[in-house]
Nucleic acid binder design. Structure first.
Lengths: 197, 197
DNA sequence: AAATCCATGTAAACGGTTACATGATTTG
DNA sequence: CAAATCATGTAACCGTTTACATGGATTT
């Protein structure tokens, strides 16, 4: 997998200086549906980036709260990030979807299981769709304000374009699951509703 | 990321014994659009699986070709695989999409670049869609025959259901890209067609 | 004659997760 | 008063990639 975490972190720091803890929030909320990272990895990566001169840090005192180490992107960091943005990606993303691996082998599973699994996926993706549509947009807008992201209308445009991708992805998945369960039921590969356990 | 490679390999071996080289082909063709692995990792994993008693191997001579080490799933391996299939996955897949990270930061990029990148993605996804629709189905069918996969109609059904997912995924992505480029152009975030370089 | 495919592996490095360690402040 | 949030880090481990090493058979 491409080394995207460094770029994602530099990108966030281009909008505003922030701590490792803040970066984790930005990544695991704003772009959670297509990238994620654990705090431990973020701290390690920040250390490495500071050694490489891409960021600098200083402790910042806070009234009534413990102080935090705030990272700021350096000119070298900006150069590195902009150079990456100026390149063109010529390969499709390599995706790993455990649920599709499971689906591939479902012909070997119990029909009761297949039915339950598909029903659960439908519920989870329905929830996720609602999360993208109703909960995430205001959360992201609020986050950008709180962390004082200096940005232009076009930044906002592309941020919300990635959200739109999430929405379309969930809708497509729900469509696929509906098709799958309908056809599987017709062919007798999953039990039709009998209600009782 | 979940430890899917072991399950994917056991699953393939449930249908027919095969070599590490064959397994790589099965994984990187049949299920390439949602899982992949390098040969070196496959060989290491096979070694580990043999130590754990999930598979056994024996050298198999071939006329006019070098011999190969053919792996067969053991009863313990079947048990392990079936136990996994009988569990229900209660979490959504965690996806990593480098192209979406790039999109998120496109407000900071040159408009010329954005335009070129989106155009290239459109071409690549169009190609991939055609690959799923025209090339993969016969390739997979042929592969299953050659490697003597003993299977039932329901196996086939779920194999092609994962292909259908790939098709829908590409169509959805193309729709998203069309929407994105249209809106970005309207708002002046990418240069409209001027043809000359 | 060269390139690709078949075929198997090892070693080092890298990316990422899990577990551990600590403790103050805020919210329910 | 308990749980969640804020806040920073280290160490060990695991999964994955890249580079190395080898060589016969087939296709172009």
């Amino acid at each position: 997998m491409k080394n995207m975490l460094k770029q994602a972190m530099l990108g966030m720091l281009r909008y505003a200086p922030m701590s490792g803890y803040d970066l984790e929030k930005m990544i695991n909320v704003s772009i959670s549906h297509f990238w994620h990272a654990k705090l431990s990895q973020i701290y390690r990566t920040l250390k490495k980036m500071e050694e490489d001169g891409l960021v600098t840090s200083e402790m910042q005192e806070q009234e009534g709260a413990r102080s935090k180490r705030v990272y700021t992107i350096t000119p070298a960091g900006i150069e590195d990030f902009d150079a990456w943005l100026a390149t063109i990606d010529t390969e499709l993303d390599e995706i790993k979807l455990p649920s599709l691996v499971r689906t591939f082998f479902m012909g070997l599973a119990e029909t009761k299981n297949v039915k339950d699994q598909i029903a659960l996926w439908q519920r989870l993706h329905q929830q996720q769709l609602e999360y993208y549509q109703a909960i995430l947009p205001p959360t992201i807008a609020q986050m950008m304000q709180e962390r004082k992201f200096e940005h232009e209308p076009q930044d906002r445009f592309f941020w919300f374009a990635t959200l739109r991708f999430g929405e379309l992805y969930e809708q497509m998945t729900l469509q696929w699951l509906a098709e799958l369960s309908e056809q599987a039921e017709q062919l007798g590969y999953i039990k039709p509703d009998t209600q009782e356990e």
